[in-house]
Design a protein around this nucleic acid. Structure first.
Lengths: 336, 336
DNA sequence: ACGATTCTCCAAAACGTTTTGGGAGTCAAG
DNA sequence: CTTGACTCCCAAAACGTTTTGGAGAATCGT
């Protein structure tokens, strides 16, 4: 309720002394420090955030841009991640603001507004593209940032990502080990790094075991996208006997397609993300997910270290992907 | 990159004039206004947010506190709601910051920090309790706020809520019309307004049709809570033939219990929230959901109007609940 | 031609904090 | 008695904006 000036006046001290007493500087006597702190406590004094921010030249804020493009919002567990991140940032005196992208504006626009208006000390980027203009912009401005997902940027930047290549590579080999030969891939939009790298993992594995990586169909990373892609693959002359989907949402769409097509229920399928609904689909959807504990905490830590000036090379986390064994991947290869 | 002073200097104008030119005041000539705006554009000038906030005595921020208590995060579609809300607030120059509650601290603590530090112009509260200390605090401070869910506060405040009473009342009557007599209720923690009012709706309907409202069990609003509550109700000497659950999460837990108990699959069940996974449970979960379009936009609008000083009475929205007809509620009453 | 009005512009204050660069006073050593 | 070190405190500047209260010049009405 009160301000530093009033508090100082009521104590017969200068603003300087009160400020320094509260901040625990050694150049104010223990006696006055106590006196000041008692008074501040009693008055319910909290420093005015805007004033502090102006003076310290720090926004005490970190922004995360929410993608709204593909109709659906970001990665799974996204809110949990944000919440964890915000909690850990708060412990360091930073708050997390969410920066949605209004229709008609680009994510770059938003970054610019936040950065040039000195509204944030750092940014958190999700859904990176292989060539991501936001990353280029932030690098040119020298603003600390961390991305969820890698990019193909020539200059390194902090990120946290799952090793999608290895995950999809392993999944493909697993199907092959089960005897599958016609292993199809339902891919996400290839401008996204995660989608591209997952496709590459599948492709490399197919090549490794000497199979043609031809059964691939790309679509938007949504249920509908997966549905349509699956229908297309199933209409091929030589159908796939197993399907690897870029995301669980697409996999769920593909499941719908499988139910509608004769013999579709014979086809093995696996997704990626471990959505909470996977346990309830029929059949329960086998999937993969990134390992590593509290993702939000990791992001917060990386952000803080980036703000502190640690080099980008030290701020890159690539987490292994683990297999989540439910049921949908257990379908024997259909005899030709 | 630049500030007002540099811009003014480079133009040979005063800071005042530049500021007013950019803000479009009439007391600067059209010619200079253009000149200033061109220069500002070219320099990529954006006003420093902290400075503006300090001077205008507005934080340009709205905080939403994320409950983290029951292990699980808030209502369904929560992130979509936040995103929509943030988008509409942004159009009015406000940003949304998320304020998680660190372990060991109360939500009240967080409110206090944000409000007394002048960090926000308004707050958005979710998961209100019948007697909510956050509401009392904000009312005492005179800070604009909107809650998601009503409270029993004697002084009115802005809110958006679903008419849980009517929804659960109607659901109960629907079961009764189907011939059910032993209609049980799995209730959420009664200190939450939503949980209480839903139980009241069930109770009132039971009373209305002359049935005993005795088959009720309360638990935490989680899958596990629903599971345990259902087990308890099923172990009663006279089992329910239909179950109304306070939330879908609890209903999903209850479904698990039904599968484990002999004859459980004969029992009709309905939840509330319309989680995306409801379509995939077996059987697909019938449920209810709040009507009304973009919830986030409504919250944003109410927040802005509250900030503008409209009286609380004009800022209360009670939305009807609609029935979502899937399959789980279609079970004939078991003959006794 | 002269006061009144309108047009443009500006100096300075204010927002509330943190930080710089001392300034008194005290005390012990020289 | 002087010097230096130390302790405790403070005045003033600075952060970058918005807003107040005019000031000077040009224009208008009479």
């Amino acid at each position: 309720m009160a301000n530093l000036k009033q508090l100082a006046q009521s104590l017969g001290l200068s603003i300087t002394t009160v400020s320094r007493a509260l901040d625990g500087y050694a150049d104010v006597s223990a006696a006055t420090r106590e006196r000041v702190r008692d008074a501040a406590e009693k008055a319910g004094y909290r420093p005015n955030a805007s004033a502090r921010r102006l003076r310290r030249q720090r926004a005490e804020l970190v922004a995360v841009t929410l993608p709204s493009d593909p109709g659906h919002i970001g990665p799974p567990h996204f809110l949990d991640m944000l919440s964890g991140c915000a909690e850990h940032l708060a412990a360091a005196g930073l708050n997390l603001v969410i920066a949605p992208v209004p229709r008609g504006e680009s994510e770059l626009e938003i970054c610019r507004r936040f950065v040039d208006g000195r509204r944030v000390d750092a940014m958190l980027l999700v859904r990176t593209k292989r060539k991501d203009e936001r990353v280029e912009f932030l690098q040119s401005r020298g603003i600390p940032f961390v991305t969820n997902g890698r990019t193909e940027s020539p200059v390194p930047h902090p990120y946290i990502d799952g090793d999608g290549f290895a995950g999809f590579h392993a999944a493909t080999l697993r199907f092959h080990a089960d005897g599958h030969q016609r292993i199809g891939h339902i891919a996400g939009p290839q401008e996204y790094y995660f989608a591209h790298v997952r496709r590459m993992g599948w492709q490399a594995a197919m090549q490794k075991v000497g199979l043609q990586a031809s059964l691939c169909c790309e679509g938007p990373p949504t249920e509908q996208g997966g549905y349509l892609a699956a229908l297309k693959l199933l209409s091929q002359p030589s159908r796939p006997t197993a399907l690897i989907c870029a995301t669980d949402e697409m996999a769920i769409g593909a499941l719908r397609a499988l139910r509608e097509v004769e013999g579709g229920s014979q086809i093995a399928i696996i997704g990626h993300d471990d959505l909470s609904m996977d346990a309830f689909t029929s059949p329960p959807l086998s999937t993969m997910r990134m390992t590593g504990g509290n993702l939000g905490a990791s992001f917060a830590s990386l952000l803080l270290r980036a703000i502190a000036g640690e080099p980008a090379e030290d701020l890159q986390e690539l987490h292994p992907i683990e297999f989540v064994d439910r049921d949908s991947h257990r379908r024997p290869p259909i005899a030709a």
